[in-house]
Simulated scan of single mutants.
Amino acid sequence: MTLVPTIGLVRGARAFHRGIGAFNVIHVESAEALVQAAEDAGRPVILQLSENCVRYHGSLEPIARAMLAIAESSSELVAVHLDHAEDEELARSAVDLGFGSVMFDGAALPYAENVAATRRVVAYAHRAGASVEAELGVIGGKDGAHAPGVRTDPGEAAAFSAETGVDALAVAVGSSHAMTERTASLDLGLIAAIAEAVAIPLVLHGSSGVPDETLQAAIRAGMTKINVSTHLNAAFTGAVRATLDEQPALVDSRRYVAAGRDAMAREAARLVGLLSPDLRSPDTDSLDIRTTDLPATEGSDAP
């Protein structure tokens, strides 16, 4: 069993100025592909399940239990995380199921409401040994949520993290969700300024649109958790499409889905190696990434 707390992987990567890949699960085959990628690369990975994906499957528990089982069966270190949950009850349910971390996304709320709601989620999660990621401001993309050029303010990020007690913070530094071309330009100076101001690991959402060398530069500047979804989905879908084009009479879905799974595993393994250290190498032997050390946080369980 190698299911480990998310916070251990994230803090371990941050301590050695490296990144940790956090990749979104869409279905069982993508979870299998991402765990295979971790094993092939010999490095840890974080599996993420979004609120949108929960909605697609109709409920949290079946796909969540499948993810947890796949993670537990891996020979590599794997953490399981709930991504972009705007529903406090969903975040609590993920904690109850055994997720190592949840992201509560209250970015669309007024600042004071975001702080209050995030504190409630943090209090609940910390009592169960789970960590919490939050978002300050809105990462662009999908719904055009903010105009180009909007960025996270380092001072506000420091105040928000202190007020909420979150364990990681997603910040707006130039990336955008759902990009299919890797052309995003990040504000590396701003990343460094936020990393200097905030004592917790930083998270880059929308990393699918960021070129390899820019991702590595962002990690050097202070980014830690690197979220990728669309780029890996494109690898999966491209392989499915190619297989069906080559074999138009094919009707066994296992055949073309397997091609997608293999393609996703290959590209995810490449990204894992690009972003993440081997956290069990000699220079990290003193770091116990299997445990949590989360502070008690005052707050209410009430929705």
Rank of each mutant, 00 (worst) to 15 (best):
D40Q: 04
R120N: 11
A66M: 11
Y111I: 08
E89Y: 12
E72W: 02
V25R: 01
E135D: 05
L60I: 05
G100M: 04
P211K: 10
I219V: 15
V4S: 00
R270G: 13
R11Q: 14
A159C: 04
S74Q: 02
L82G: 05
T214H: 08
I200E: 00
P248A: 01
F104N: 04
S207F: 00
L109S: 12
H177E: 12
D212L: 13
A125N: 03
M1N: 12
G137K: 02
T164I: 05
G144R: 09
V150Q: 13
D153Y: 01
L169Y: 00
L109P: 01
E133C: 10
E213A: 15
S74F: 08
L188S: 08
T291G: 14
S229Q: 10
V115M: 07
S253N: 13
R120V: 02
D283V: 15
L3E: 07
L244N: 04
N227S: 10
A157H: 00
E86H: 14
D87C: 05
A259V: 03
D278K: 05
R119G: 09
F99W: 07
T292G: 14
L34W: 04
L250N: 08
P303A: 15
S161F: 07
A125C: 10
P5L: 00
D105E: 06
R255Y: 04
G21A: 13
E32A: 10
D187G: 13
V4E: 07
V102P: 02
